[in-house]
Design a protein around this nucleic acid. Structure first.
Lengths: 196, 196
DNA sequence: TCAATAATTGTCCCACTGGTCAATTAAATG
DNA sequence: CATTTAATTGACCAGTGGGACAATTATTGA
């Protein structure tokens, strides 16, 4: 274990980031007031602004944290994968893990994404997310398809994943996790087996 | 011509819906205040609430209006299409028409979508949109692939379209209209020509 | 021409929110 | 135990936004 005991500051920060993200799920960005976040975390409003400079910083870090979970989930699966094909599946299944792929979480993401055009900080995080997704996909697809087609399919897959997440958030057509996975697996299976 | 001259009420309503949508593009839902909408339309705040019960109703109708344009664009192209394949292309190209497929418009949609989980009215509109897209796609794909596969590909195409729109709004990777079209055409071309 | 109706404005109000700050309490440390 | 430091609270403030409404102006129509 590298350091010493976890400092209180870090504990509080984490709790508040978590609370912020959870309130965001129900209330959206406008409705997620500092008061509500504090109450949800079992503290007073003052404490929130004691640990975070302002509302933006709080939600920026909430986004960072939520993203980190997803990133780790995918990374963990990637670690276990050996072939390119397995890597591709790892990325996909990671992005659709049950604990993540839920309407309320999609709501929160949607709220954050809606702020991206006006919040450079959030835009940067979003850029990192997409960029990581893309390079992950390339590492799986280029060995199978070459640079040209690999890049093309990477964009298709990531757009498809985004689209399915969006539909989850909007809950139109009541898309289930299983259906989403079937859909995307159907896509890659057809695309990667030109021999049949 | 069916009726008499356009009533002032309808003119004002239309102007305000339009203004609301335009402010939404720049400011997002929280920033799109009644005052700003009024000013943008060249009127006073009072007038907005004279023609709309409240803010929700205004933006609900703004969403309806924006959706109607898109719907008509697709419908117009569908009218010209004869074969199923042409219908499919019509739907796609309609959804990526240059006047619609623009970042600022995607921003506005994103803001509206983010409210869907908490605004039943917006949710209903969203449901209609998805449902229309789906049945349009079915009318093109089922004749080509049968019910089973047609439905599957319809979901894939609509998710892909959604995903591309989302990326446009987030402007991650600076996706261009042309690239988006190439991507989705590549997808349907491969999927529909199993013989090669 | 004049009343009735519609359109438009500007003011006012209340609830609420982000943020500041002094005061209080708890923890740590010598 | 005493003193310094950190954690936490609650009161307060200024700004804002949605919405109500009375007052004013324009339009219509008999």
């Amino acid at each position: 274990m590298a350091g010493r005991l976890t400092k209180l500051v870090d504990i509080r920060r984490k709790e508040l980031r978590q609370a912020a993200f959870e309130v965001l799920q129900r209330e959206g960005m406008a409705g997620a007031t500092l008061e509500k976040v504090a109450t949800h975390a079992g503290a007073s409003k003052g404490i929130v602004l004691h640990y975070f400079r302002n509302k933006q910083e709080l939600f920026e870090q909430a986004m960072r944290e939520a993203n980190a979970s997803l990133r780790d989930a995918v990374a963990e699966r990637l670690r276990r994968a050996t072939t390119p094909r397995e890597r591709l599946v790892a990325i996909i299944e990671g992005n659709f893990e049950e604990r993540f792929f839920q309407p309320s979480i999609a709501h929160a993401w949607l709220s954050l994404c809606a702020e991206v055009p006006r919040e450079p900080q959030l835009a940067r995080i979003q850029a990192v997310i997409h960029s990581r997704m893309h390079s992950n996909l390339l590492s799986a697809l280029v060995p199978m398809l070459g640079a040209q087609e690999g890049r093309c399919m990477a964009l298709q897959v990531s757009s498809l994943i985004d689209g399915l997440w969006l539909r989850l958030g909007l809950q139109s057509g009541g898309l289930s996790r299983t259906e989403a996975l079937e859909l995307i697996h159907d896509f890659i299976d057809r695309r990667l087996s030109r021999d049949r």
